[in-house]
């Protein structure tokens, strides 16, 4: 299989990732275990968009994925095209929309961001080292320098937080792939997702034990 085919003909795997995240976040009450990052809080909020070819189902609301509309769309053969997630890592929370087929993030609201407009006072975080030999420089130039330093610092913080979110998603994706590219997907995950989508009861503890054992075995291979 050519690289382009492995990319283009298997984009549906991204939709299955979203489906699995949705399923696990509901069944495990919003706390997902990961092999590399420990436990993470994750659930769908605001919107989930499902599709199957040209047919679209958009479900909006505080907890759009919990309702029957979204589950009925799954049972009609649709899969998530994009979904808005809330994520909590320790005491921090972020939200974003994840597009299934490109794994691209939009509307990413980061937990904490330094103010990118105010000037830091000398000695404060972001103020930079004391400057020398600039007595003759105009205030405008100094203001520009300070604004540039503050913007650079704010950017660095935003990128650090962005990479944390990306690392979290990559950890979840790694666990998903361990299931998806193994027999556990058809044997364990798909039957459980069908029961869940149909409104049946899932024994979360039992599922979690089986899932942990499956990902552990897949990791060792």
């Amino acid at each position: 299989m050519q690289l382009v085919d492995r990319i283009e003909k298997r984009r549906f795997i991204g939709r299955e990732l979203l489906l699995w995240l949705w399923f696990e976040s509901e069944v495990l009450d919003g706390t997902l275990p990961t092999a590399s990052q420990g436990e993470l809080g994750l659930w769908i909020e605001r919107e989930v968009l499902l599709s199957n070819g040209k047919e679209l189902t958009r479900v909006k609301g505080a907890a759009p994925a919990l309702g029957r509309d979204a589950k009925e769309a799954l049972l009609a053969g649709k899969l998530p095209e994009r979904a808005s997630f809330k994520v909590s890592m320790g005491e921090r929370e972020a939200s974003f929309t994840l597009k299934a087929e490109t794994l691209a993030l939009s509307s990413l609201r980061l937990p904490t961001v330094l103010d990118d407009g105010d000037e830091p006072a000398p000695g404060e975080l972001g103020a930079g080292p004391p400057r020398r030999g600039r007595a003759r420089r105009s205030t405008v130039e100094e203001d520009e320098d300070r604004a540039r330093d503050a913007a650079a610092l704010a950017f660095q913080e935003r990128m650090a937080l962005t990479r944390e979110i990306e690392a979290m998603l990559e950890a979840l994706y790694a666990d998903f792939l361990r299931l998806r590219l193994d027999s556990h997907w058809e044997a364990l995950v798909v039957p459980a997702m069908r029961t869940w989508a149909s409104g049946g009861r899932i024994d979360a503890e039992r599922y979690l034990r089986a899932r942990r054992a499956a990902t552990h075995r897949a990791r060792r291979r």
């Binding site: 691209a104 509307s107 990413l108 609201r109 980061l110 990118d116 704010a154 950017f155 935003r158």
Partner: peptide
């Protein structure tokens, strides 16, 4: 990349 929420590829 420096203001508001982030949308990127």
């Amino acid at each position: 990349a420096t203001k508001g929420s982030l949308t990127y590829a």
